[in-house]
């Protein structure tokens, strides 16, 4: 098991927003200054909002930056009927404060010491924890093979596009993006939804015993995990994190 040096009960802390940037039509990257100590790539935090009448709502967000980076970054997808995300994307500004607790989790975590090969599979904003793993892989100088299969709706929806292109140039890293709704002329990546056939072709085969992490909407994660187990990956090495519907 991977864990922090000292485990204690979590408490809510105040974080300062240092940057608030729209990355895609539906996703924002929010950078926070907060003293949480070192986190592990794949961990998440809970964000809590309190209304003036005392009503509180909380949501979990994966940490999208590596522990080696200066800020704790989140990728927040705006859900039009959401209770929390429209506030975070539309109202929050650099300089504002929000409440959070964390870092949380030791199961859906990868760090350089665990080695490879590692297969990451993301649906939409489920790529967030994998951005942290990729940054950590580079910062730690890891030689583990790291392969990302990332499903986005259209080219404009690809989160952290420039960084992913840069990671793709590094030895040992493969970035494989599939577009499910529309692909521009000249698109060199994959087209179509992640299904059993695409997984069989794009994922590090079970014979090489990859550690597998799957993150995204619930239906995506459960469909992918089921197909991977059917293709011979051991259920225990296929780790999942569901974002909901």
């Amino acid at each position: 098991m991977v864990g922090a040096a000292i485990q204690r009960r979590l408490t809510w802390q105040v974080a300062q927003v240092s940057a608030h940037v729209r990355d895609t039509p539906r996703c924002w990257r929010i950078s926070l200054d907060v003293e949480l100590g070192a986190w592990l790539p794949g961990q998440h935090i809970d964000v809590r909002l309190t209304a003036s009448d005392g009503y509180q709502a909380q949501r979990s967000y994966s940490i999208a930056s590596a522990p080696e980076e200066r800020t704790l970054d989140l990728v927040v997808e705006r859900l039009d009927d959401g209770e929390v995300s429209p506030y975070l994307t539309d109202e929050l500004r650099a300089g504002d404060a929000i409440e959070l607790r964390g870092p949380i989790g030791g199961y859906f975590v990868w760090q350089a010491g665990l080695g490879g090969p590692v297969q990451l599979i993301a649906g939409g904003s489920g790529v967030a924890p994998f951005l942290a793993m990729l940054e950590h892989h580079q910062a730690a100088g890891s030689d583990a093979r790291l392969s990302l299969l990332y499903s986005a709706r259209a080219e404009d929806d690809i989160i952290a596009r420039e960084r992913l292109d840069e990671h793709a140039q590094r030895a040992g890293v493969e970035i494989d993006i599939t577009l499910t709704r529309e692909a521009p002329d000249g698109w060199k990546g994959r087209i179509g939804r992640v299904d059993a056939a695409m997984l069989a072709e794009a994922v590090i085969p079970a014979s090489e015993q990859p550690q597998v992490f799957v993150c995204g909407p619930t239906a995506f994660v459960e469909g992918v995990a089921e197909a991977l187990v059917a293709q011979g990956h051991a259920p225990a090495v296929v780790k999942t994190e569901r974002f909901g519907g």
Binding site: M1, G3, A4, Q7, R8, R9, L10, H44, I45, D46, Q58, S60, R101, G102, I104, G105, G106, Y107, F108, P217, T218, A219, E222, T240, E241, R242, F243, G244, G245
Partner: peptide, 28 residues
């Protein structure tokens, strides 16, 4: 997948609430 199933999460989403109380890494 029906409406309720689509909202299904996993233990990662409950970990913060549990670690309010338990002083251990709860997801493992």
């Amino acid at each position: 997948m029906d409406h309720i199933a689509a909202h299904r999460l996993d233990g990662n989403a409950a970990a913060g609430r549990l670690e309010d109380v338990f002083a251990v890494e709860i997801t493992s």
